[in-house]
Computed example of a mutant assay.
Amino acid sequence: MAVDFLPENVKLPVGQRVYSEKKMEHEGMKPHRRLVAMSTLFVYTAWPYILMFLLIFSWWRPVLILNLALYSTVLFPTKVFWPEFLNMSMFNTWREYFSFSYKFEEELDAGSRYIIAEFPHGTYPVGPLLAGTLIPRMFPGRCVLSVGASVLFRIPLYKQMFSWMGCQPADRKTFQSLLEKADVAAVVGGVGEMFMQYEEKEQVLLGSRKGFIKMALANGADLLPVYHFGNSRVLSIGPRSLMNFCRRLRISVGILVGRWGLPLPREVPIYMVVGRPVKVEKVGWDSPNFQEKVNELHEKFKKELQRLYEDNKADFGWAKRPLVIA
C-alpha cells in the first residue's frame, strides 16, 4: 500500500510507502519545475568540473579573483544544521524529479540511539541527500546528523551545503562526538562503491567495512539499515580502471555520465526503505572480546541488509535483480 503524500502534522505510517511530494498522475512534473530541478542538479553534480574549469582559467584576473573568493569560504566555520535550509523549494523539485518515496518497516524506539547505515553510495549518494532534506518529517522529534567524506569539506559551497544539512567529516572523533547527542547517518560504502554500477545486479561494499560496527558496539547504539532503491542508476562513472586508485586515495576521479551523456542525474525513481533495527549491547573498546563481538554484529547486520533488500525489491520492480555484498 502506498500513500500519495503525507503532511508534516500526520503521524508517519509504518509499513507503507510514502511519496515525499504530491504525485501528478495525469500531468506529471510541470515543465518549469523540471527545468529548475535539472539545472540545479546539473550545477550540484558538475560542481567539481566547474571548479576545475575556473582553475584552468585563473590566468584571467576576474576568474582568479572569483577563485580566491570561492576557496576562501572553506577557511571559515560554517553552521552545523540549519533547518530553514532544508525548506528550500529547490529540494522539493529534486524530490519530485526522482519521485522520492520512503517506507519504515518498524516504528523507532524513542529511547534508543541509532547509527543509520545507508546503501548504496552509487556514483553520487543522491538518495541519502534527498533523505537528508526530509529529516524533520521522517524522524519527527529526533535529532539526526550525518558524516561524510572529509574531502567534501575542502570544496567551496559543498562544505556549506553539507554542513547546513547536519553533515560533518567522517573521522572517528567527529563520529563519536555526534553520536553522544544525536542519531548519526553514514553512507557506509563511500567512494569504494562509486564504480559498482551494473545492469544485471546491485552491489554494495560491506565485507570490509566495520568502522560503523565498532562505533555501534562501543556506544551501545542500535544499527538501522537503509536501502535506497534506484540510487545506483542515477549516474555512472568511468573508466572503471580508476576504481582502485580512487579507493586508495579516498577521492572521486572519473567522468560522470548521466542524462544525455552529461553529468546530469537521470530521472529515475528513488525508493528509500528503512529496515528493522539491529539491537546492540554495549561493549567497551578495551574489552578482550571486542573484535569477536564486532565480527558477530557485522554478520548479523549483513543478513539484515540482505533480508531488507529481498523483501522490498519487488515493490520497486526489481524482483529479478539480486544484491551482492562485496
Results as ranks from 00 to 15, higher is better:
V3Y: 09
D4N: 15
P7V: 06
P7G: 09
E8S: 15
N9M: 07
V10P: 01
K11F: 04
L12S: 10
L12Y: 02
L12G: 08
P13Y: 15
Q16D: 15
S20Q: 04
E21H: 02
K22Y: 00
H26Q: 08
E27R: 10
M29H: 05
P31W: 07
A37D: 07
A37K: 03
A37V: 05
M38T: 09
S39L: 05
L51S: 10
L54W: 05
S58T: 10
P62E: 05
V63N: 11
A69G: 15
S72C: 11
T73H: 04
K79V: 13
N87H: 12
R95H: 03
F98C: 04
F100E: 13
F104Q: 10
E107R: 12
A110K: 11
G111W: 00
H121C: 03
L129M: 11
G132M: 05
T133G: 07
L134R: 04
R137A: 14
P140T: 09
V144G: 01
L145T: 13
S146Y: 03
V151P: 02
R154P: 00
R154S: 13
I155C: 09
M161R: 09
S163I: 06
C167L: 07
D171L: 02
T174N: 10
T174R: 12
L178T: 11
L179V: 09
K181F: 05
G190S: 02
S208T: 05
R209G: 00
G220M: 14
L223M: 08
V226S: 00
F229T: 02
V234E: 07
S236L: 08
N244T: 08
R247L: 08
R250M: 07
R250P: 01
I251D: 04
G254Q: 03
L264E: 05
P265Q: 14
E267N: 14
V268M: 05
R276Y: 02
P277D: 11
V278Q: 06
K282N: 05
W285Y: 12
P288M: 07
V294I: 04
L297Q: 06
H298M: 02
E299T: 03
E299L: 11
K302E: 12
Q306Y: 07
R321V: 10
R321D: 02
V324C: 00
